[in-house]
Write a protein that binds this DNA or RNA. Structure first.
Lengths: 351, 351
DNA sequence: TTATCTTAGACAAACGTTTGCACAACAGGA
DNA sequence: TCCTGTTGTGCAAACGTTTGTCTAAGATAA
């Protein structure tokens, strides 16, 4: 109520446009437009006059109008499962760096790992006519028609990290087979003989990759592959606890390669509660290299760093290059980054 | 190169518009527009026909055109220090929920706690003509002209959590004075006599608030206020370590109220390395209630929950209500949420 | 029958840019 | 004098919506 007269005062509302500048300088809007773009077709005097007046009047171009005219929006949609996961917030960091530098805007959407939400988001994007989409699919998603529909609308998409099968578009991921291979090999070299794999859920490509790397390393190290040493978890604490207990009961592992740090941490709780000394009776290696592990009494001995920042950065770069024509959108970019095995200084229990 | 002829094929590029639907149904575009909006001015038959054809042709409205016409952008800019901090990613979650439901878009910007970056971002926003800004200022920022300039351009701003002085706009924060008060009182009731305060840096309003609540509780509990029990840290591990060591050397605290969970964790490392038994010889309480604390051997006994999700949610709601006229932008909203002291089940060292 | 009211829809302007084309003025060369 | 360039600018259309006003036809009432 307070200031409603003031708010309705029309003179305050009018924002100055190209037309207004043109009117004041007695020239045409097209001239002003070109002058602002520093077109060589406009004389230096006119250009200067326009720039001065624009500055003086605090002119800001209407991005909306420009977008409409030019058929672009300057918006890059980022669709991720959950930014509170450190991996994804780092991905966003990498993306933002590139997109901001290119004077575009990051529009953020979270699927919270739910298929229906992801679908709804992509449908929204179709009408928003974004310049491109960076997508990491939800854990839950099993069908991918929504992605294909966006591609059909000629919206460039770059898939990050979680790459669904059968979708033919640009992608950036980290070679987790190699990561699992290196991690397992490292455990074997350290003398571990019974290395367990606490893998992720079946449908995830990431689980498949880790499995392959693990097996490959066992073979190379001449260790036998035992099914009792391999478990899949659905990433809930309850399930992780159950499977870790099963491992301890039946397989007597001396090391565990965990799907990610969270799985490792939950599994370690189980081991501790059963009197095992972490990294002494049983060694842990996992994926992700979360910053929180620095605060742990007994963090995993090593972690496979997946370079999330670089994944985001690279994916965003591909999109920007496609949009400015540096890269031909028709040639699909499929980039595989190399992971890195980060070894921590060893902390063992000394009672 | 591959498909460039195909890409240039004009027939593929044309997206269907209201005009196209109108042409096919031999009616005018305005009728189509109104039909799509289910205007009662259009007959039921026509409405149905329009909807059917729109569906069949996969019509998506051009948000850009609509925005231009309606003088809005549908974009809410979110400017935060760092989304990898759990607090802020939860804030984003709350914001996204509201903004997405209102069919608007979240544009994300991170200042990385740097003043120059924050300034640059807000300048960009001025020309992008966003519908509103949700801002949590950078730790580094001491001057706030960039915020005022945005307000001068009639762009509604809601400040979150970190509220700078002298800026008169909407704000949502959590009452940290009360949080500190409750936390300190709880420690006192538990029998702690020498409660230290490991506070944040001077310029932060948040530090001031915690200080006041701490003092108030000490007085109420009839404990003496000792300067040697109060330290300020700059939130780096090095400084925290130094100040915690000073505390142990000179003040013999039996409890520590830490600025946030990270400060608490670093300080606890120091205590452990000096042989103190956490939550037995020295009790910890802090702010934030990070999820990582569930994985800790000895988490802080209690944490002051600041409800970041709710902060984001509330702030976004204010913005949306201002923009749809439910709320008058001229009446400033200053909302203070109540914190909550979360008590953990006690874990003590049992050697 | 005429006057008034409703209904369903059409017309056209507007939002603020950008850009292809036209054009006037002036120059230089033949 | 005419032709051809060059330079600087204006005109108008276009991007895809939304919305105020107008109209024609039919309905109702006097």
């Amino acid at each position: 109520m307070a200031n409603y007269i003031w708010l309705n005062c029309p003179s305050m509302k009018e924002s100055i446009t190209i037309k207004e500048i043109a009117r004041r300088l007695h020239i045409s809007p097209s001239t002003v437009s070109r002058a602002l773009q520093n077109s060589p077709r406009i004389s230096v005097q006119t250009r200067q006059a326009v720039h001065e007046l624009a500055e003086q009047l605090q002119y800001f171009p209407s991005i909306t109008a420009r977008n409409l005219r030019q058929g672009r929006t300057g918006i890059v949609a980022v669709v991720l499962p959950e930014i509170r996961e450190n991996f994804f917030s780092e991905v966003v960091n990498g993306i933002e760096e590139v997109v901001f530098a290119a004077h575009s805007t990051v529009a953020l959407y979270q699927s919270h790992d739910r298929y229906d939400r992801e679908k709804q988001i992509l449908e929204t994007l179709a009408s928003n006519q974004v310049d491109g989409v960076l997508l990491s699919v939800a854990k839950e998603s099993q069908q991918f028609g929504h992605i294909q529909r966006l591609l059909d609308r000629r919206i460039p998409i770059v898939l990050l990290d979680r790459i669904p099968p059968k979708i033919n578009t640009h992608q950036v991921e980290c070679n987790m087979e190699k990561g699992a291979f290196e991690a397992t090999k490292w455990l074997a070299r350290r003398g571990c003989q019974r290395i367990a794999l606490l893998n992720g859920p079946q449908p995830l490509v990431a689980s498949e990759e880790r499995y392959r790397g693990y097996i490959k390393a066992l073979i190379e190290a001449k260790l036998s592959v035992e099914n009792s040493l391999i478990k899949r978890v659905d990433l809930t604490t309850a399930d992780i606890t159950e499977k870790m207990n099963q491992l301890l009961d039946t397989a007597r592992p001396d090391a565990v390669l965990a799907f990610n740090d969270y799985v490792a941490l939950d599994a370690m709780q189980v081991c501790r509660s059963r009197g095992k000394r972490i990294n002494q009776d049983i060694s842990f290696v996992s994926f992700a290299n979360l910053p929180l592990t620095t605060y742990l009494e007994y963090p995993p001995l090593a972690s496979v760093e997946q370079h999330p920042y670089k994944i985001g950065f690279t994916a965003a770069e591909i999109l920007m290059k496609i949009n400015d024509g540096t890269l031909n959108g028709a040639e699909l970019q499929k980039i595989v980054l190399e992971p890195e095995l980060v070894i921590r200084e060893e902390k063992t229990v000394n009672l």
